[in-house]
């Protein structure tokens, strides 16, 4: 078994793609012509966005991500050497700040924001597993 995709259900796929391009510097790699599904250029494990409205036909149900509601208990974590700059760019692009960049005992610098849909996003330095 291999982790292939992290798929986030969102209200508006193109809007979310544009937001992730601006706030986190990602690039879109695919958009279905229906605009109900898109993938970002994130290497072997793909971050993709799918329109919420398609879930019901598969019998799924979930608590939708919304800015006004408490976020779900999981996050996306982006890794960068310059957390300060990435955090500032994210907030300047419309992310809501939750925790500004700070050091933690195990050596990382970490920070948290919420994206346009209210999802929790962490921006952190890489973890040095050899340390």
């Amino acid at each position: 078994m291999k982790l292939g995709y992290t798929i986030i259900y969102v209200k508006n796929v193109p809007e979310t793609v544009a937001f992730y391009e601006a706030a986190f510097g990602l690039t879109q790699r695919f958009m279905h012509e229906s605009t109900l599904y898109a993938e970002m250029q994130t290497g072997n494990t793909v971050l993709s966005f799918s329109a919420e409205e398609v879930i019901e036909l598969d019998g799924l149900a979930f608590a939708p991500n919304e800015k006004s509601a408490i976020p779900a208990g999981w996050e996306i974590c982006f890794i960068t050497e310059d957390v300060e700059a990435a955090f500032e760019k994210a907030v300047a692009s419309g992310c809501a700040p939750v925790s500004k960049p700070h050091g933690v005992p195990w050596g990382q610098t970490i920070s948290y924001v919420r994206d346009l849909n209210g999802c929790l996003v962490e921006i952190a330095t890489p973890m040095n597993l050899e340390g």
């Binding site: 919420e52 409205e53 019901e56 979930f62 608590a63 939708p64 919304e66 006004s68 509601a69």
Partner: peptide, 21 residues
């Protein structure tokens, strides 16, 4: 209505009202 369908009707009226503000 959208929230009701996404949750399979499982949100309480209280939760729906909170989200509707």
């Amino acid at each position: 209505v959208r929230r009701l369908h996404l949750t399979g009707g499982r949100f309480s009226v209280t939760e729906l009202a909170a989200r509707a503000g």
